[in-house]
Design a protein around this nucleic acid. Structure first.
Length: 450
DNA sequence: ACCAACATGACATAAGTT
DNA sequence: AACTTATGTCATGTTGGT
């Protein structure tokens, strides 16, 4: 009996179907441990509620998840965790305890390695099957603190590759906790130069003048899509004006809390203000005025949804030596083009970028930047749902394959600050993640046929 | 216990458009 | 003037890590 048959038999004995067993072996390889195969099947069962074969997936399908059913799922999850007795201390899957939901975040959140970190803190153990290495290389991004179980599911859909969690506060003056799954080499990475400022005062020395000693922030919190308006800053100003110097503990606490929540800065006596869009562009590694031309609301929103350029560039830097003649890029959920800006700042030539982005404002920003800085071909597509596997295959034939598939899928239903619809990976927007997987697999199979 | 979190929806008001 | 679209304000609860 072959190793494959033996494994299938074992799985069938565990009351999985033969089809499921076969699929799991195709996905994970014959060499995969039995528990990896079991994990893979459970993941497929969860993801299998979606039929992506006819591209008919729409947000509407998942509206039914809201309300009662969602509540039930949440309850079940809680019970399961309790029953399981998981302490959260183990990252290892095992058969007698369902660890589907476990994906602990590292502390410090420095990924596989970072510049300026001593080798002792470097974690370089990463298992990745030969068949899953590029080309095509792919790079996937989303918020680190998603709902429990989301990263485990994402990881399984992306060939069981272990996510790399990085907080960009180790690379710039603002926190940004993100998970990245990619099949890039992790040796010989190089950070962008010049090194970005690491503290608020290094980034904006002029704010020292009015910064009170009792505001001890040295870095910003995560730069979000929403910002404070004049009502809040006015209220803070009035509170301070009517307080003594220094203000009472309770006033200080109120002001500091608001400053932290909205990343406010000190611009005058008793005067705080939100960061300017241009300042956020700078903190995130974009060129000055990158998003200029939009209304401020749109600028904040698209920047809040964006990559941190230096972090992404650090990971992508390994591509530079591999593609001296430039790259063909398939960019999903392009947004304002953080990935492309990263490649550009690395000095890489983009021969072709096929960009998929539905938001008109973001598209305009990216197109304008492209026309100003690039000579390659830009192809724009509106919606990941409308990009068919056949179309992908045609692009692969036309351009001779994609070297990099890059994108971060919507975090709306995963992010902590979403109070109203944090429904997880099957939520209205975040469900588009499955199209990332579908399209990536379409690229892989088209390139394998070549 | 405390803190932070690529947010959303309802609503009012402002700013364009026809 | 009537209508559409953009912008601003406010209130809103949970989750996971530390």
């Amino acid at each position: 009996m072959s190793e494959k048959d033996e494994k299938i038999n074992s799985l069938v004995d565990m009351r999985f179907s033969e089809d499921e067993a076969n699929m799991a072996i195709i996905r994970c390889g014959v060499d995969g441990d039995l528990f990896v195969l079991v994990d893979s099947i459970s993941a497929s069962r969860v993801a299998g509620n979606l039929d992506l074969s006819n591209h008919q997936v729409t947000g509407r399908c998942f509206d039914s998840l809201e309300g009662e059913r969602k509540q039930r799922l949440v309850e079940e999850r809680k019970k399961k965790r309790k029953r399981c007795g998981c302490t959260g201390q183990s990252n290892q899957p095992s058969l007698d305890c369902n660890h589907d939901e476990q994906m602990l975040l590292p502390n410090p959140m420095v990924g596989f390695n970072l510049p300026n970190y001593s080798p002792s803190s470097v974690r370089v153990t990463r298992t990745i099957l030969e068949q899953d290495m590029g080309p095509p290389y792919f790079y996937y991004e989303n918020v680190a603190r998603a709902l429990t179980g989301v990263w485990a599911t994402i990881s399984r859909s992306l060939y069981d590759i272990q996510p790399e969690f990085v907080d960009s506060k180790h690379l710039c003056a603002a926190a940004r906790k993100r998970g990245y799954i990619h099949n890039l080499p992790i040796e010989n990475r190089a950070p962008l130069l010049p090194s970005p400022p690491m503290t608020i005062f290094e980034a904006f020395p002029r704010y020292k003048k009015w910064w009170p000693s009792w505001d001890q922030r040295t870095q910003f919190n995560c730069l979000l899509t929403g910002v404070a308006g004049p009502t809040l800053t006015g209220k803070i100003g009035r509170a301070l004006a009517s307080a003594g110097t220094p203000p009472s503990q309770s006033i200080q606490k109120y002001v500091i809390d608001q400053c932290k929540r909205y990343n406010l800065v000190w611009v005058g006596k008793n005067k705080v203000a939100r960061l300017e869009p241009q300042e956020i562009e700078y903190l995130l590694g974009f060129p000055k005025d990158h998003t200029r031309g939009l209304g401020d609301t749109n600028r904040y929103k698209s920047l809040g949804n964006s990559f941190h350029v230096d972090t992404v560039a650090y990971h992508l830097s390994v591509l530079k030596g591999m593609f001296p003649n430039g790259v063909n890029v398939l960019s999903l959920f392009t947004g304002i083009g953080g990935g492309e800006v990263a490649l550009h700042r690395l000095g890489m030539n983009m021969r072709t970028v096929v960009s998929v982005e539905i938001d008109k404002a973001s598209k305009r920003i990216f197109r304008d930047w492209w026309n100003q800085t690039q000579t390659g071909t830009l192809i724009e597509i509106d919606d990941v749902k409308s990009l068919t596997d056949d179309q992908v295959a045609t692009y692969v034939t036309t351009f001779g394959g994609f070297d990099l598939v890059i994108g971060g899928s919507p975090c709306n239903n995963l992010a902590g600050c979403n109070r109203s619809s944090r429904h997880g990976l099957e939520g209205k927007q975040s469900v588009l993640f499955h199209h990332y997987v579908r399209i990536l697999n379409a690229v892989k199979s088209a390139m394998a046929r070549k």
